[in-house]
């Protein structure tokens, strides 16, 4: 048995060079790494990403907003971001506990690919994409194309997630996030919704609604979005939500709730999220 290796590179270039040399298991915030490991001994070679300063932080670029892969959920909570990111900020406050938010990273939440990942629905509503680097180069995948299923992603073994990108065009409007769980803190959601709506002259110009924990990967409700656009952003907007809008979800029965309940609850919280945003739009108009 060969002894596994440990590396703590300082730069992205060093990290991807390592990844091209064999099998490495990345470690960043550790909040999924250790629970997955349990008490079993660690036999993998570990590439510890915590030394790479360039991976952490939020910056505005000409294309939009770039969230470094190692940016923690606390960083998101504290960041000065436009109102379109309010849903992401609310979700950040629901990731585990303060302790988890202080170490858990945005990219880690995506790479872990849990159907109940709190960060995914709001990032979907922001049309986020994932920047992947390898020794061979950089590619950018839409978030929907990055998370393939329950615990499955498009990440290749030689690749590193370096950033999550939100285009300027999707950074407008207001957003919110609702998490339905069986208890107040530290809870895996039964269902959750992120919603972002842009309004001009009292009408919805953009709508992005995503539901989590009700399918293998959180899903955008595109039919609903289409039905929302062009409508008056008033209290009646929530009534647009119909059962068929959620037809694309495929909830399961598990210890947290029944599939039937999830379907029902998802519709309800989607309507509430829209009502909250429409109410806010009315407030602004008034």
């Amino acid at each position: 048995m060969t002894q596994p290796r440990y590396a703590r590179p300082d730069t992205i270039e060093e990290a991807v060079a390592l990844l091209s040399t064999g099998r490495w298991r990345p470690l960043a915030g550790g909040t999924d790494f250790y629970p997955a490991q349990g008490s079993r001994p660690i036999r993998d070679s570990i590439v510890d990403l915590n030394g790479i300063a360039a991976l952490r932080g939020i910056e505005r670029t000409t294309e939009g907003i770039r969230i470094g892969a190692r940016t923690s959920w606390t960083d998101i909570v504290r960041a000065d971001l436009p109102p379109a990111f309010e849903g992401l900020r609310l979700a950040a406050r629901e990731v585990g506990s303060v302790q988890i938010q202080n170490t858990g990273t945005v990219a880690g939440n995506l790479c872990n690919a849990s159907p109940a990942a709190d960060g995914v629905p709001p990032l979907l509503t922001l049309d986020a994409s994932v920047e992947l680097r390898s020794a061979a180069g950089t590619r950018v995948l839409p978030l929907q194309a990055f998370i393939l299923g329950n615990r499955r992603t498009a990440l290749r073994p030689d690749e590193l997630v370096t950033a999550v990108l939100v285009p300027s065009a999707s950074a407008g409007g207001r957003s919110t996030f609702l998490k339905l769980g069986a208890r107040r803190y530290l809870v895996i959601s039964i269902a959750m919704v992120a919603a972002r709506i842009a309004v001009a002259a009292g009408r919805v110009t953009q709508a992005a609604i995503a539901v989590g924990s009700c399918s293998e990967v959180a899903k955008r409700l595109t039919a609903l979005e289409a039905d929302l656009v062009g409508r008056d952003a008033d209290a009646a907007l929530a009534h647009v939500v119909q059962e068929h809008h959620l037809a694309g979800l495929s909830p399961i029965d598990d210890v947290r709730a029944s599939a039937a309940y999830r379907r029902e609850a998802a519709r309800e919280i989607v309507a509430r999220a829209i009502a909250r945003l429409a109410g806010a739009a009315e407030d602004m108009a008034a």
Partner: peptide
């Protein structure tokens, strides 16, 4: 040992973390 209970909370540079999840 999974970040579920918080009993192992310590401050790392002033911020609370679950020390069971910190390398």
């Amino acid at each position: 040992d999974a970040g579920d209970c918080g009993a192992c909370t310590v401050l790392l540079d002033g911020e609370p973390v679950c020390s069971c999840l910190v390398p």
